[in-house]
């Protein structure tokens, strides 16, 4: 695909664009968190880029709890993907924030669709978006503690809202009393083991 956006980004932001790549045809730019909104606005407004179509915003946890420090710098990689219906090209902009009180500015003024996605990133990873008009959880509930997609959150640490009944659960086959199949492959610790 066209590398036009990446070139324009480099020309415009210079050293603030830390890294560009085009692995398997995906144009990716890694930028400094301080310029996050500026870059987003540029990609949206610049007539040669014109990425007005908001595709996705999410995050990746780069920390491996077996080897890394949980508060490491550059722990969460937040990315946004934008597409131009006019020029038919797309770009992925990434930035990294620290694991200790991660914060980032919101891009809702640029693409209004970022609203729920930022809520989701907050819910799943605990990244606070400054200036977000409605910073609530979205997929889990308000009583939920922790951020489930962080690598150090055990996959099966449930936080039930209603008390489980006790007594007999005499299910017949094929169901066992405490059904479940831990796959035992995860990087995250498993509560049951």
């Amino acid at each position: 695909m066209s590398k036009l956006i990446l070139e324009r980004l480099k020309a415009q932001f210079g050293a603030d664009v830390l890294e560009v790549s085009s692995f398997r045809g995906d144009d990716v730019a890694l930028v400094k968190p301080a310029r996050w909104v500026d870059v987003a606005r540029f990609v949206h407004d610049d007539p040669r880029c014109a990425c007005t179509y908001f595709v996705d915003l999410s995050a990746v946890d780069l920390c491996d709890p077996r080897t890394d420090d949980l508060d490491m710098d550059d722990r969460f990689e937040v990315y946004v993907i934008a597409y131009s219906v006019e020029h038919k090209h797309r770009v992925r902009i990434k930035t990294r924030v620290s694991g200790d009180e991660p914060r980032l500015a919101t891009v809702i003024p640029v693409w209004s669709g970022a609203n729920w996605m930022e809520r989701e990133v907050f819910d799943m990873y605990g990244v606070h978006f400054e200036g977000h008009p409605d910073p609530r959880r979205i997929l889990t509930y308000d009583e939920f503690k922790g951020h489930p997609l962080r690598k150090d959150y055990p996959a099966n640490r449930a936080q039930p809202l209603v008390e489980y009944r006790d007594g007999t659960f005499n299910k017949l086959g094929p169901f066992l009393q405490d059904e479940g199949m831990p796959l035992n492959r995860s990087a995250a610790p498993d509560e049951r083991n």
């Binding site: 449930a158 009944r165 059904e179 479940g180």
Partner: peptide, 25 residues
């Protein structure tokens, strides 16, 4: 609904009989 299925994780109730009595699975 019977046992949580292969969603053995933080989000899913492992079978509704943990919450309400069930007659048929």
């Amino acid at each position: 609904a019977s046992c949580g299925g292969f969603y053995d994780n933080y989000a899913t109730v492992p079978g509704i009989d943990k919450i309400i009595p069930v007659d048929v699975f």
